[in-house]
Design a protein around this nucleic acid. Structure first.
Lengths: 199, 199, 199, 199
DNA sequence: TTCTAATCGAGACGGTACGTCTCGTCTTGGG
DNA sequence: CCCAAGACGAGACGTACCGTCTCGATTAGAA
């Protein structure tokens, strides 16, 4: 949030930027990405759609991926924080199903896939994505395991990072590489196999 | 190979294309991708670097990803066909280590990552990539498991596809998403956990 | 003239530029200058009006004044070459009336006035205008006097340059500075006074 | 003059405008015109150079030519009021020499040339220039002739306007169009020829 | 041997988007 | 009420590539 000075609808002043313009740009970027894909997402079209001058975009965002990063915001944290059901298997089943849903059906997931795709060509974006979002998400992904360890459901010296990657990685692979559907049956089977192995 | 008619250095004839031009384009594309990244890979620059007219490129390749796909060629099949050591664990350990090496260090791996990245923005490319290369690779990835089933090392009704994805997917996740190094220790641990679980 | 290769209607080739594009640009520039003035004459609008890409303009003309200079072309030579009536007074009367008409009513005159105006801010344009057109026009302006000297109507040691400026300069002053109409009465009076003085 | 309230150095008060800001703007405009020419004279740069907000300029001057007009002020009246020597030839020689000097060497002359140049693209400016300065100057230019008529040096029914233009116009032509130097010899010759013809 | 048709290089063409610049307007907090 | 500061919508600037086109030269099998 940019502070109380920015909430008013105005055309700019020396003490703060236009919140209306900022919101319009983010929404336009989101819409255009979903409608026309990453290639169809140009600064020119964002500006036109948002009813905003190009210069206003360049003033606040260095590139279109910065717009997407800001539009992406905290969607991941909001949608992908695992709930605590008291059982590891249940926690993981729910969480992985949510992850699959997020990646394949949500608008935020579309932005995420575009960003990860672009990160293959842009090492700087890759770094920012990892530091800004993936690290935090990884910490959230660890929670079910850590809770299970705390309640003695799992052994203490478990390699939690590896366990997380063995779930999350497989789902990502389907989404990003093979493109096969990620059904509830698939994620449940993935979780069950792992939980069976670990306990 | 395009046959004996194409090998000569010439500026055109009515029965075949210039093999020299074809090779120059593929090499220029490869070089530019490695040097300047996917964004710096333009038809204009490929033509200039290859000493070839733009029209010659457009005549034979619909887009720059087609050039990359052709440059990518059968590198994957050559580098990533699993050897048969007689033991599932050994086969998988070797294969996964090769995969990690291919993805992170080889030129072909760089092209592969660029193509997968671009496929996030280009569903048509995604389809071609899957049909043309990923399906074949998946079949090769299955070989160690199928051989283990044949020699009764594994049960017959094993979900081989799932097992493959639980190995390959995790490595891809590290390479494409988190960017963490994929060490031999990591791939061995991945294989050992799976093999222990399945046998 | 650009040679026989340029007359064909095409979209460009390595041996010549598109005459159609060139003509469209010059005509569009002329039209826009007359309609919207020099300030409303932008490369963007010329391109749009001419149905031509901006790059095509930048390829051939360094700036919009170069377009005007080319559009101006040889209009001055065509319209302002004094005829020979055998009498100094008649020659000058006709010539000065033509000059007034050219400057105040013709499209080429509008371009000329814009160029002279712009030359006040652009010394390089001033030089090109003088070397390219004004010098030649001055030579033409001298013709009636030189013919009169040849036929002994005027003395041999007459300062022809000064005489020319005393006619042409006054007309320019009205057109460029005071904006008063330049009537036939005015130009005739100007000529008569001078001729009376010289003979 | 704007009164005693305006002389103080302040950042705003409710009774009048800042004289300091006004003077800074005029001086900055003058400097920028001389240093970078008319094209380099932008409201943005004037504001930056004068240490003044753009809005302050737009509040008081509709456009940059208005600033120049105000900066131009009464320089013409001060420099170009013909003195009375008692002889037509002397009056005119002095006056025309002063005019040439004013147009070619003074700062005010540079502003004048820029304004006349811009007036070729801007009919409104042309009108204001004529009504505001040129008419008054023309009246001053007539003075030597009117004094000569009064003292019977010239006939009463002389076309004074034409006579003025035949001197002033030729000098303007050299300055604005041909760019040739306007020497004392030239102006003297011009005057002498006219005076000889009229008397 | 000459003819013919496809390919080659070169590069001009109409476009689209880029990122920068300046315009003239607006909104603000302080004097 | 004026001032500075500066964000805003607007739109032109000159550049880079896009994908299409036209051209003359090159080439080798067919006539």
């Amino acid at each position: 949030m940019l502070g109380t000075l920015c909430g008013v609808d105005h055309h700019g002043n020396r003490y703060g930027r236009s919140e209306a313009a900022r919101a319009a740009v983010l929404e336009a970027a989101d819409d255009l990405l979903v409608e026309h894909g990453f290639a169809g997402l140009t600064i020119e079209k964002i500006a036109a759609r948002a009813g905003v001058a190009k210069q206003t975009i360049y003033r606040w965002w260095p590139s279109k991926v910065d717009i997407l990063l800001e539009a992406f915001g905290d969607d991941m944290a909001e949608d992908l924080t695992p709930a605590d059901h008291g059982y590891l298997a249940t926690d993981l089943r729910e969480h992985l199903a949510r992850l699959a849903d997020f990646l394949t059906t949500s608008d935020a997931g579309a932005v995420y896939r575009a960003l990860v795709g672009q990160a293959q060509h842009d090492p700087q974006l890759a770094t920012r994505l990892r530091d800004g979002h993936l690290a935090a998400q990884h910490a959230r992904d660890r929670l079910p395991f850590e809770r299970a360890i705390a309640r003695r459901e799992l052994v203490e010296n478990l390699d939690v990072d590896l366990a997380v990657e063995r779930l999350v990685g497989v789902v990502h692979y389907r989404v990003l590489v093979t493109g096969e559907p990620v059904t509830r049956e698939f994620t449940d089977a993935l979780v069950d196999a792992l939980v069976l192995e670990l306990t």
